[in-house]
Computed example of a mutant assay.
Amino acid sequence: MTPAFEARGLQVALGGREVLHGIDLVLPVGRWTALVGPNGAGKTTLLKTLAQLLPFRGELVVLGKPSGAWSARERARAISWLGQGEPGAEDLRAADVVMLGRLPHQAWLSTPSAADSIAVERAMRQTQCWDWRTRPVGQLSGGERQRVLLARALAVEAPLLLMDEPLANLDPPHQADWLALVRAQVAQGRTVLSVLHELTMALHADDLLVLQAGRLVHHGRCDDPATHQALRHVFDHRVRVQALDGQWVALPHV
């Protein structure tokens, strides 16, 4: 099958400083890959580069098509983005924020279609924020706002869903809901990439990309002992990975 992303020699410099150093990777479609690594490893930079939100050197192919061959509208329909700490329009209603995710599907200055409204309601029900659809975003808590932004990303209905720290401000029950939602997206054939600091949640993914100092040091399945060893290495052996109730968990190792 055509990979979701293929990168060869990917390099990114920000503010004159090299942040990503010649990354090569191939990410298959229909899987959930979590990006992990210590602070400053380049996780967000790599995710933004794959979303084509940053200038880069090297080659990037998305769904079999070179990055430069995508129009802005095509890319917006194919790649849905949830950024870290994104500001919201405080006066907009929650439903209007989610409707922004439908812009790539609408003609210029057109009104939302019935299909747009259905997609917005479906996404808001999936993230359990439909009940406050008429409330201004400025009146929502941090966790509520995050669920609205997640609904906006889902409303795009893109085959590729990229999320940077999607669990920010979510309490444990809603983190579990997010996990179920991601699994549902993958079951429908979508590809999910997420940057996560919560290593135990990341270990629920199909695969891990382990980064350190702007380099990809490991790409493997979450149940692979080599992946667990890579995690221990990049975190200076201050975490340990073990099985608990049939699931891998990452624990502090003092």
Rank of each mutant, 00 (worst) to 15 (best):
A119V: 03
S80P: 09
V249R: 13
P38A: 04
F235P: 10
V217N: 08
N39F: 04
E59F: 05
E157Q: 15
A78P: 00
E18K: 13
M163H: 10
A155V: 08
V239H: 10
L10E: 08
W32C: 09
L46V: 12
L35N: 05
P3F: 15
L154R: 02
E59Y: 08
L149R: 00
P112T: 04
A89N: 08
D224M: 08
V234H: 05
D116L: 00
A13S: 15
D91K: 01
A155R: 02
R238W: 12
D206H: 15
Q175D: 10
L193I: 10
G16T: 08
Q106Y: 00
A155N: 05
G64N: 04
P38Y: 08
H218F: 06
V148P: 01
S194F: 11
G37K: 06
H204C: 14
G37R: 06
A176I: 08
R93A: 05
R31S: 13
A7V: 13
D171T: 04
A184P: 10
L46E: 09
L231R: 13
L100T: 02
V148E: 00
P159T: 09
A243G: 12
L54G: 04
H253E: 13
K65E: 10
S113D: 00
F235W: 14
R135H: 14
I23E: 03
A94G: 12
R17K: 15
G142W: 14
V29T: 14
V19S: 11
A69S: 13
L203T: 10
L196V: 05
R183E: 15
V62S: 04
G42H: 07
G220H: 13
L160T: 02
G101E: 05
W132H: 11
L160N: 06
P87E: 13
A226W: 07
T191S: 13
A34F: 05
W130N: 04
L60Q: 05
L63T: 06
D245F: 01
N39T: 11
L208I: 03
D164L: 10
A151R: 02
L14S: 07
G9W: 09
A226F: 10
A123T: 06
L82H: 10
V241Q: 01
E121G: 02
L109G: 00
A76P: 14
A41N: 07
A205D: 09
G42N: 11
W248E: 03
L244F: 03
L208Q: 08
E59H: 12
R190L: 04
L50A: 09
M124C: 06
T134Q: 14
D177V: 07
E144M: 03
R221W: 11
Q128M: 14
P112Q: 08
K43E: 09
V98P: 04
G30S: 02
E6P: 01
R17L: 06
G64I: 07
T111Y: 08
V148A: 02
R75N: 00
G83N: 09
L203S: 11
P87V: 01
I79L: 15
D116G: 00
T2S: 12
L20G: 11
I118C: 08
R147K: 07
W248A: 15
E74N: 06
H218A: 12
D224A: 14
A226G: 06
G220W: 06
L244M: 12
D131M: 02
R75A: 12
A250M: 03
